[in-house]
Design a protein around this nucleic acid. Structure first.
Lengths: 226, 226
DNA sequence: GATCATGCACTGTGATCGCAATTGACCGCT
DNA sequence: AGCGGTCAATTGCGATCACAGTGCATGATC
């Protein structure tokens, strides 16, 4: 039993619980774990080839970030369900924090960031054309946070990270419904242009528009589900 | 050695790690643990009379909420230091989330909430008159969250909880400097009146004003410290 | 007497074990 | 054949132990 059959390739950080955290986080952001389903410490541990202990640590963190829900009675954990109310709160929070981060980033943009963003956007388009949902979501996440990290606002940045973690499952629902075909005419080019011009307000507006469109799609998808 | 080696009475919840979490959380919110000092799992465990294991769980949660900082090199943990930049980010986040929660609460206020708030405010004034800093901070926290919980917005509520956790140490610094005498002419009465009238915008403005005044005091205190 | 090296105490991390509670399925009874 | 009860497996929680890395302090050397 404790002898790990398959040791899944984890990100080469030093701490095991961090690797487990990243693994589950990625699975949630890209929506590989469906909402509502229950998971267990030991099953996750077996799947990742580690002992239950670092999984407990990772799950604790995720639960604190509300990316995983713990049934108060059972103490059993599951992926939070998707409700219109939750989505609405998350939208509101994102629409305030993320444009602010973009505006701050615009004030200290350099040529390296621009090139990075263009490279990510190219990968995004490629994944899009190939119908690669996971690739698209990963690239989209990378694009936004490449910008946000430039803001230097670590408190707000971590809040944004928590919000993406909670919104990941919603995104998967969207693409499960509409497919990768009718994806948002993303405002990424607009955002890159604003950053290049160090136009804080322009970056704010571009990101806000990008978010609004995406959230609207999620809203309709969720309402259709319910 | 920051705190007294007292075996603190823990709330009789069922889970030990939750009791530990609450204990540390209270210590942070009321500022009993000074910023910058290092804490250790085993020391906390000994202080609370439990094994290091549930402390680890509680600390993980608090670290995820950025209420405790983990040195990436040492893996050692400490209370985050107070910087003007951090305070500014926290202010901005609070000024958006908390008035919003108050506005939502106003739409579903009943007589019971009003009475509860008045009772808390009375305790707050009493603590104030007695120069009881801990009592004041506890009552102030209770006042705000009695309102926020009424909003029914659990996502935003938990974000506000995380923000208070991070701002707690700042508040202690303020009162350590200026004493309980020159405390804010709080807008609590104003907030209660707005809630009673189910005036969402009024509640929003009252809470925003209350926050702004408090945060300004913190800002000057922090700048004086630095 | 000052500086450097060595060792020890302490840190977080992870594994293993035992415990109590809940879940789910199987079996016997009516 | 339907239903109720019981047993076993699984769950999370907490404790204890072992381990590697860090930092401080003491002691030895120049």
């Amino acid at each position: 039993m404790p002898a790990a059959p398959q040791r899944r390739a984890l990100a080469d950080s030093t701490a095991v619980h961090d690797q487990v955290y990243d693994a589950i986080r990625q699975a949630l952001i890209t929506g590989r774990i469906a909402p509502g389903v229950g998971v267990s410490l030991r099953s996750l541990a077996a799947e990742l080839g580690v002992s239950p202990m670092p999984v407990r640590d990772a799950v604790r963190r995720l639960a604190a970030e509300r990316a995983l829900a713990i049934n108060p009675a059972n103490k059993r954990l599951s992926v939070p369900s998707l409700t219109a109310d939750r989505l609405e709160q998350l939208s509101q929070a994102r629409l305030w924090i993320e444009p602010e981060l973009a505006a701050r980033a615009a004030r200290q943009t350099d040529e390296g960031l621009i090139r990075t963003l263009q490279a990510i956007d190219a990968r995004l388009d490629a994944a899009l054309a190939a119908g690669d949902v996971d690739g698209y979501m990963t690239a989209n996440h990378a694009f936004h946070f490449a910008i946000y990290e430039r803001s230097g606002a670590d408190v707000l940045l971590s809040m944004a990270g928590g919000l993406w973690l909670q919104i990941g499952p919603f995104m998967r629902v969207v693409f499960g419904r509409v497919g990768t075909g009718s994806l948002p005419a993303d405002r990424h080019a607009e955002a890159i242009a604003a950053l290049k011009a160090r136009d804080a307000d322009g970056a704010r507006r571009a990101i806000a528009a990008d978010l609004s469109e995406g959230m609207d799609k999620m809203r309709t998808a969720v309402e259709a589900t319910a």
